[in-house]
Design a binder for these strands. Structure first.
Lengths: 160, 160
DNA sequence: CTCGATTAAGTCGTGCGCAACTTATTGGCC
DNA sequence: GGCCAATAAGTTGCGCACGACTTAATCGAG
């Protein structure tokens, strides 16, 4: 188990194996992969209530924060390609949560706008982060530390 | 930046926001999702050399560790459903990396066995963890801490 | 021994995620 | 102005992930 002190305390004397082990449980990548799927799974029943998938929920988070954004900007925020977003946005539009319209000043660009229903959904979504935070069961320090480490990792791994 | 000594140096006084924020960048879930995809993307060119996808690589890691395992055991190790593994294993078999055969003592079960080629692939894969470890750029302490935190998170979130 | 419940693996449908590509528009250089 | 590179969005193909379901084998209570 991990100490609450934001990781300040010794954790375990587990014999950390040689660099470059091929053992599954030594791989940070697998811990990451498993954690990501486990968290998504925990979201699923909550998001089902809202009629959203997890990636769709992330898109809505961005839109609730800044409406009338382009697909490109959305992709920059979520680190997703247009080939992922375009069909996803189509589904959200079909579900009545947003509108898509070409920008007058640049016909290449498409502005994504929340519909009334999409904007209203924000209220119903308000309980989701709290519920997930509970399930995660991390102290605020652990939560912040994990975020920091994951961002560092992402930045390093994304570098050139 | 994050300190190496498991948090010995101050990181940042970023105003950690209210519990239950809907801002994308406050969500641990998003940091996790983004990190997982970024790491997988980093693996991709290395695994392309081996003719493997990332989930296929994870399966091979398990098999290199313990051969002649059942689909069920593989699923337990990777936390994946048979509906994910069955087609994936079919593809690995088609690529000549493994064989599948019904167990004599329990005809419901299927034993997954490495082929010669699958076993040999291990040598070529040996450099992958080192290369990825480099790219991740975490200190051993940061690496271990991240793994610990992710396992804690996974365990909490998976609990009933 | 029997038969209903359980278990293992697999199929099917849907929605990502991404590489490779296409289409349409814009910008820049002469 | 004309043309070509760059850019934005979208399409296609493939491989996961997973829920819901199917098939087949085994288990176990009576």
């Amino acid at each position: 188990m991990i100490s609450a002190e934001a990781g300040s305390r010794r954790v375990d004397p587990a014999p950390e194996p040689a660099e470059g082990s091929l053992l599954l449980d030594d791989q940070l990548c697998f811990a990451l992969y498993a954690a990501s799927r486990a968290v998504t799974a925990r979201y699923r029943p909550l998001l089902d209530e809202l009629g959203l998938t997890y990636p769709q929920y992330l898109v809505m988070l961005v839109l609730w924060e800044q409406d009338a954004i382009s697909v490109r900007e959305l992709g920059a925020a979520l680190q997703l390609e247009s080939s992922t977003l375009s069909p996803l946005l189509k589904r959200l539009e079909a579900n009545g949560l947003l509108h898509r319209e070409r920008r007058a000043d640049d016909e290449r660009s498409v502005a994504i706008r929340l519909s009334e229903e999409g904007a209203r959904l924000r209220d119903r979504a308000a309980t989701v982060p709290v519920s997930i935070g509970d399930a995660m069961g991390l102290t605020p320090e652990q939560d912040a530390l994990t975020k920091q480490l994951l961002r560092l990792l992402t930045a390093n791994v994304s570098a050139d």
